[in-house]
Design a binder for these strands. Structure first.
Length: 467
RNA sequence: GUGGCUGUAGCUCAACCGGUUAGAGCGCCAGACUGUGGCUCUGGAGGUCGGGGGUUCGAGUCCCCUCAGCCACCCCA
């Protein structure tokens, strides 16, 4: 041992969430979960990976994410070996994909989930919830994976809070989601809540609009960027999303003005609802979003604190997704927030290490450190005592590093323990312990049997052992 | 995938126009009449100067390549 092998770093675009950061994560996750429950959403946990096919069907084959950002999985180590060492590792996650139908008994290709919606709808269908429940309101919190170049507010493994209301076409479903968003950001202390809103129509009215855009843009095709020239044929609609070509597309008629009667009515209802709820919003005719499943309402929640990736969250309606997955003609909508982005937008005073340390010290003020002199007897007694205290419901700690008594005290002080119990040969012989109250600097001897009672005020009632 | 910036101890940073054993603060460990924290003092551990190659008598300092991080494009949470 002792060779100069250094382990690889955490993979690009991933991050370790260290104990002092977990404090802030918990705050976001708990706040979101509690709020979602209050809004009638219940937690659903789906797998971190699914059949690749599911995502292709859900988000759309031509989607950026499906086309080049998926993390493909080899179903087993064996499958990868069978794929052969000759396979050129052609950069990117696809290098590890099993050659179709090859290996692992022809298992279907799998992919790490790049979003929640597809898996949620899959679960809804798979368990027949469209039949037994109709309406299903669920939320999920967890990691998602996208093979992208990392930057501010963008990781390869990132985390979302996701809500979905499946089985309803009612515009009030979107409104409920937007109200939730407003409450969540408020609860997290993120200022300047705003909604960017648009309607992108439905299967009836969008194709016509798409053709119109194409017709209008065809004459100036050469002035568009390469990307948009390709989009013109595939999905002219997305040209609206391009910032490079913004000046050439500025005069296009907004989709929201080309809606069919049903979509127009729906959009009007959403807008009226926002006004009713007093939610500040702005129509953004360029908001189209990158997944094919969206219909009608789409929205985003921007923040000035984020940098280029300025959406804290977003979502919308996807009335075609359930039927496209073989289900009944039921509408649905959903929304997602990026947890990393929420953290970025929150006040550093609430998410920083100082806040975590303060929380840690507050908790430790009621905790006990059991210090012992170096002899075997006291050290064994410390183990026994610390276990007894823990079983009585107290947070208790002791030294595992072989520190001197002085160093143990120093450690206890630094960590903010409110109490230190000291055991040495003398106390041990008399069946006593020394109890030191750190803040006051008071110390007293007492019979070991009385220790728990003396510390009792610090013990939460519920944690006390039942008699 | 493309572009820009950055890369020296665990952390934040020094090191003049290339010149001797690469420094500081914080943190960590240990001591200050031998069983006791916070202050102070003293000492100590810890660096292949991201990696490789080149130029040079000599490179942390210059050049090339590479890797990583950050930011931006793109896309999105």
């Amino acid at each position: 041992m002792g060779a100069s092998w250094t382990p690889p770093r955490a993979p690009r675009g991933t991050a370790d969430i260290l104990p002092e950061q977990v404090h802030a994560w918990h705050r976001v996750e708990r706040t979101a979960a509690e709020l979602a429950e209050r809004y009638g959403y219940r937690e659903l946990r789906t797998p971190a990976f699914e059949a690749l096919e599911l995502f292709a069907r859900g988000m759309g084959e031509g989607t950026e994410v499906v086309e080049k950002e998926m993390f493909l999985l080899a179903p087993s180590g064996r499958a990868r070996v069978e794929a052969g060492p000759g396979e050129a590792p052609d950069a990117g996650p696809r290098a590890q994909a099993p050659a179709g139908g090859h290996g692992a008994g022809g298992a279907e290709p799998l992919a790490l989930r790049p979003e929640f919606t597809a898996g949620v709808v899959r679960a809804y269908r798979q368990h027949g919830l469209d039949k037994t429940r109709g309406l299903l309101k669920v939320y999920s919190i967890g990691p998602l994976f996208r093979y992208e170049r990392p930057q501010k507010g963008r990781q390869r493994q990132f985390h979302q809070v996701n809500l979905e209301a499946l089985g309803t076409g009612d515009p009030r479903a979107e409104l409920e989601l937007i109200a939730f968003a407003q409450d969540l950001l408020g609860a997290l202390g993120i200022p300047d809540f705003a909604v960017r809103l648009n309607s992108i129509g439905c299967a009836q009215c969008r194709p016509g609009y798409r053709e119109r855009v194409r017709a209008l843009l065809q004459p100036r095709r050469e002035r568009l960027c390469a990307n948009c020239r390709a989009r013109l044929d595939r999905n002219a609609f997305r040209v609206l999303d391009c910032k490079l070509c913004a000046e050439h597309t500025a005069d296009l008629p907004p989709m929201a003005e080309q809606l069919c009667a049903a979509c127009a009515e729906h959009f009007a209802a959403v807008r009226a609802g926002l006004e009713l709820l007093d939610v500040p919003y702005r129509i953004d005719a360029r908001l189209v979003r990158g997944f094919d499943y969206y219909t009608r309402t789409v929205f985003e929640f921007p923040s000035g604190r984020l940098g280029a990736q300025d959406a804290l969250g977003g979502g919308g309606r996807y009335d075609r997704l359930i039927p496209d997955m073989g289900g009944p003609e039921l509408g649905a909508c959903g929304l997602a927030f990026g947890i990393e982005r929420l953290l970025l937008a929150m006040d550093p005073a609430a998410t920083g290490s100082a806040a975590a340390e303060a929380a840690e010290r507050a908790r430790r003020a009621a905790a006990v450190y059991v210090a012992a002199t170096p002899e075997p007897g006291p050290r064994a007694a410390a183990l026994e005592l610390v276990t007894e205290l823990r079983r009585a419901g107290l947070e208790a700690e002791f030294d595992l590093a072989g520190k001197s008594l002085k160093a143990q005290l120093r450690a206890a002080d630094k960590a903010g323990f409110g109490w230190v119990v000291i055991v040495g040969p003398e106390e041990l012989a008399r069946g006593e312990v020394a109890l030191r109250q750190m803040a006051a600097g008071h110390q007293q001897r007492l019979p070991r049997a009385e220790l728990l009672a003396r510390l009792a005020p610090a013990v939460p009632l519920a944690a006390r052992p039942a008699r």
